[in-house]
Each structure stands twice: as structure tokens, then as C-alpha cells.
């Protein structure tokens, strides 16, 4: 059981997907115009994450290694479809507020990332708690951003209005406000030197994650590897080219010096 509480803490605090890992940015920016939407999206994602982690962990010995990613995608997509149909039936208001972002949970990198990094290698119970922790971490992140934007933009928390209409800054509920709130948030994290994907040491790659594979647990790395590799090759080639040029220059200088000497003599 100790392991399970550790997974919960890991998901909610140590590796919080929104604030620390900066994964799943599309729903983070898109649905956080109010705290309720953020909470709904977070809980929906949590449900999918727990179910898919449990199922993938159950099947971890059956799925062949070579086709594991398509297999994971099918499992995740099935659960997303089930949850979507349930939402349509029982919470139609939330369903229409979240719209296209519910089917897009399939391509949320948190879910595939956890499947690849944890559920496919560990037994069922810890995997369920891992999914629960990560999902709750995501929910907390989305709800907090939603609360910030709702207070600033429409003067309310969870629809309960407490600031008169004259003081609303509508900017924050619109699209540009989402980017600005997230920018300030990551800037504060950088300022306080809190752990975050944006201030890892040695992150000099053009990738969002900084190309720091030592601290990475996401599945997107498989795809990113190509780009990092290409970058390294390009850097090497540039270095070799520079070395070549330097050598040629040195040679030319030497020859010139030799010629000068010969002339002098």
C-alpha cells in the first residue's frame, strides 16, 4: 500500500503533469475558461487514465512489444468513446461545453505517456493508483488555472459571482488570456526555481522538453528522438566543417609564412 500512496503523491505533486511536466497543453489552454470546465475535463481525463492504465497493465504480457503503441491507442480510444457516450447521456451540459476536446483525450500525451512509462511494466494495482495520481494532478492543475481565469475574466468561482460586472477583464476568458496566464505561471516557476519542464538544467534542444531524456517519462520521446538525433548530427557536421575550415586556414597561414620567409631569404 505504501507504493500506492507514493504513486498518488508522485502524480499530484512530484511529477504534476500540468505544472511540472507541462504535458497535455491543448486541453490545459482550451477548456480552462472556467473552473467548472477545468474540473470536468480533469475528471474525465482521470477516468480514462485510470481505466486505460488498469487495462493496459492487465494486458501487458499479451501485447507484443512491436505493436504496443497502436494497441495502447485502441484501448485508450475505446475508453474515450465509452466515457463520451456516458457524458452525452448523463451530463449533456458538460459534454457540449467541452465539445471536441473529449474525443481529443485520445491524443493527450499524458495518457499514452503513462501507458508506455508505467502501466506496461507494472502490476495492476500500482498502475491504477499511478493513473489516479496523474489524473488528479491534471485535475488540480486545470481547476487552478480555471479558477484564476474565471476570477479575472468573469469575477466568479464555479459560477458564483462576487465581483461586479464593471471590473471584469474579459480578455482572460478569451483565447489570448489563456496563453498569458500560462506564461505568467511558468515565469513564476522559473523565478522560484521550482521543478518544471521549462527550467531543466542542460536543456538546449529545440524540443519543448529541452531534449533532456534523463528526466523524461513520456512516450513522445520515441517520436522526438528522431529530431534530437538529427540535431546532434547537424551539430557534429557543423563542428567538423568548422574544424576543417580552421585547419585549411592554419595551412594557408603556414604557407603564407613560409612564402614570406622564402622571399625574405
Amino acid at each position: 500500500m505504501n507504493n500506492c500512496t507514493e504513486r498518488l503523491k508522485n502524480g499530484i505533486i512530484t511529477e504534476n503533469p500540468t505544472f511540472v511536466m507541462m504535458l497535455g497543453m491543448c486541453p490545459t489552454l482550451a477548456v480552462t475558461s472556467s473552473a467548472m470546465n477545468g474540473l470536468g475535463m480533469g475528471l474525465t481525463t482521470t477516468a480514462v487514465l485510470v481505466l486505460s492504465n488498469a487495462f493496459i497493465s492487465l494486458l501487458r504480457k499479451v501485447i507484443p512489444d512491436k505493436v504496443r503503441i497502436p494497441a495502447f491507442i485502441v484501448v485508450v480510444a475505446s475508453f474515450v468513446t465509452i466515457i463520451q457516450l456516458l457524458l452525452q447521456a448523463f451530463l449533456p451540459a458538460l459534454n457540449s461545453a467541452l465539445g471536441v476536446y473529449i474525443p481529443l483525450i485520445v491524443v493527450n500525451c499524458i495518457i499514452l505517456g503513462r501507458a508506455e512509462a508505467y502501466a506496461s511494466k507494472n502490476p495492476v494495482v500500482p498502475s491504477i493508483f499511478d493513473g489516479l495520481g496523474m489524473g488528479l494532478g491534471f485535475t488540480v492543475g486545470l481547476t487552478l488555472i480555471g479558477i484564476c481565469r474565471e476570477i479575472l475574466g468573469s469575477g466568479a468561482i464555479f459560477g458564483f459571482q462576487f465581483i461586479p460586472e464593471d471590473f471584469h477583464i474579459t480578455f482572460f476568458v478569451l483565447a489570448p488570456g489563456a496563453f498569458l496566464v500560462l506564461a505568467c505561471l511558468t515565469a513564476i516557476q522559473n523565478k522560484l526555481k521550482l521543478p518544471s519542464a521549462t527550467n531543466v538544467p542542460g536543456g538546449d534542444s529545440s524540443m519543448a522538453c529541452g531534449g533532456n531524456c534523463a528526466q523524461c517519462t513520456g512516450a513522445s520521446c520515441v517520436a522526438n528522438k528522431g529530431i534530437i538525433e538529427a540535431e546532434r548530427v547537424a551539430q557534429k557536421a557543423a563542428k567538423a566543417q568548422a574544424a576543417k575550415e580552421a585547419a585549411a586556414k592554419a595551412k594557408a597561414a603556414k604557407e603564407a609564412a613560409a612564402a614570406k620567409q622564402a622571399k625574405g631569404e
Binding site: P176, F179, A183, A187, I188, N190, A197
Partner: peptide, 16 residues
């Protein structure tokens, strides 16, 4: 503290 991702997000906000 705005170096890296934050300034990119601010840019994206202005573009939006």
C-alpha cells in the same frame, strides 16, 4: 525568469 517557454507563450498571446 521569462526566458524560454514564458516569452514564447507571451508572444503567442499577442499573436492571438
Amino acid at each position: 525568469s521569462f526566458k524560454g517557454t514564458p516569452i514564447v507563450l507571451v508572444t503567442a498571446s499577442l499573436m492571438a
